[in-house]
Nucleic acid binder design. Structure first.
Lengths: 137, 137
DNA sequence: ATACACCCTGTACTTAGGTACAGGGTCAAG
DNA sequence: CTTGACCCTGTACCTAAGTACAGGGTGTAT
């Protein structure tokens, strides 16, 4: 079973079958070859791609951005320098997300430390706490 | 100017004015007091809250989840242990996001390193690259 | 050869997260 | 005392990202 039907791909990727067709329409998945009867034949590697899309979505990337990430490659139409520039921008975006997440985590850790005690805590600890993180706001 | 009108809050928070009303309806912003003429009077602290919401959204949290994050506080209806448990879950979620972002970043860094050379790169470098990261998939 | 699970296209519906009026009141500057 | 920039409620509309059929073909196990 070197090829996957759309149903198999959906199952392995953990998404709805219609989602696969949707991604194909939107250009997130390359159009797969078809069997003589018109069935889509996906390579095994499609599973990886689906999972990547889902993960990236959970990190706040839109399908449009994800398309851009997946397209980051060396093709004849774009120079290496070009690709590199785009990649660097993405890296910067990602670093920013990581920084923000770190601040949130810190705020939450502080919250658990604080509220394990007794008595009441300020109105909204997470905001208070985040607020005291560096120039997040 | 200790209070903000809805328009001022929207401007300072960097969002559309209608978005503020929407957030209020959805319970992400507490219902503010009103002036005698019915105008909303937001505390300055609302700005922080709006910005937090926007940041969290960019990190892939839904408004529902954000509501949960903002509600993580000590109120009479939930025990400290309860809040702590929820907070720990959120911390775990955040850590996972950070891990995934780190893997993506690594993949992109590798990509820029690879493609600055000459020659062609695999079909989809980011997938290849991410793939070789630990048990991401 | 028929039944059942699967695939096809096309179109319509849904949900989250906003945005945009319409129709009417408020407030401050000239 | 009016005009322009705000505010109010209510309702309608929009986009992204799916999801759900309907109506019809395929493939295979009995």
């Amino acid at each position: 079973m070197l090829q996957l039907t759309i149903g198999e791909l959906a199952k392995r990727g953990g998404v709805n079958l219609e989602t696969i067709r949707y991604y194909e329409r939107e250009g997130l998945l390359p159009k797969p070859p078809r069997s003589q009867s018109g069935y889509r034949q996906f390579p095994l590697e499609g599973v990886r791609r689906i999972r990547f899309i889902k993960l990236a979505q959970e990190l706040g990337f839109s399908l449009k951005e994800i398309k851009g990430l997946l397209a980051l490659r060396l093709d004849p139409d774009s120079t290496a320098a070009d690709v590199k520039k785009q990649a660097k921008q993405k890296i910067a975006d990602i670093e920013e997300k990581i920084q923000t997440l770190r601040a949130m985590k810190k705020a939450l850790v502080r919250l658990t430390a604080t509220c394990c005690g007794e008595g009441s805590v300020s109105e909204c600890p997470i905001l208070e706490s985040l607020d005291s993180e560096r120039e997040m706001f």
